[in-house]
Amino acid sequence: MQNAEVSAVDEASPAFRLRSPLPHSYANYLGRLMFLGVLTVQGLGAFALITLGVMLRKLRVAQPVVGPLVRREIYRAGVRLLPMFLFVAFALGFLVIGQTVSWLTRVGAINYLGSIMVLVVVRELGPLLTALLVLARIGTANVVELGTARALGEVEALEALGIDPVHYLVVPRVVGMMAGVFSLTVYLILGALVSGYLWAFLQDVPLTPGDYFNQLAGALSYLDFILLALKTCGFGFIIAIVTCYHGLAQPLHLDEISRSTVRAVAQSVIACVLLDALFIIVYLTAG
């Protein structure tokens, strides 16, 4: 008799809503996809706002605990990736800049080098490539770590100890990822520009280092520095929020972590590209 009052159906779960008996058609499929997309954006937006709120409200709370965590995340998402980024910068210089310099020389358009470098490396390729590499190396690890912690009950343990999981688990990752993507982008751009010139120099391109530097300096404006900082911090914020959201909000069981990781990567890439498109509009409007 008591059992009759106990609900056996998890009516709140997304799986239940998706199994509702509607006729199958492409329109329904697209409609469901759009609905899930809206739900995802809503969830991510709410999570981002909560994280920002906690960051501001608990700026000075438990600094002996959160401070070392922030430093660890900066090391993990920044310093530890430096060797890989130096290699990528070298490869980028060889693959893109060296060849560009060589071809511009052949067609007599070497005067446009500075503008092309700034456009390709500083504004687009450097920040986006850095974001994607950090997503691959650290973002995926975030989902797995937080998903495992969630599935093993560590998040409940934090709450039982009166520790805000967002403050302890998410805020350090957000700060670390923002600082990491920003500084790694700067290193990548510098490395790519230097190694690009070295490759061009090896190809006997008639361009002195002074001319090369002057062209780059002439093509850069103050807006490039401001927007580069905003864009890279934005990428870091997005990657951290999306990966932490999928790590913390979704997996209640270990077997859900792999799916969450795939979803987090796809959504992070989409969000970063959308933010990039937004900055292109800003560049075009300002330029």
Partner: peptide, 12 residues
């Protein structure tokens, strides 16, 4: 239930 918030495990 903590792991399935839509499921009621005890009432009243």
């Amino acid at each position: 239930a903590l792991k399935s918030p839509g499921t009621t495990v005890a009432v009243n």
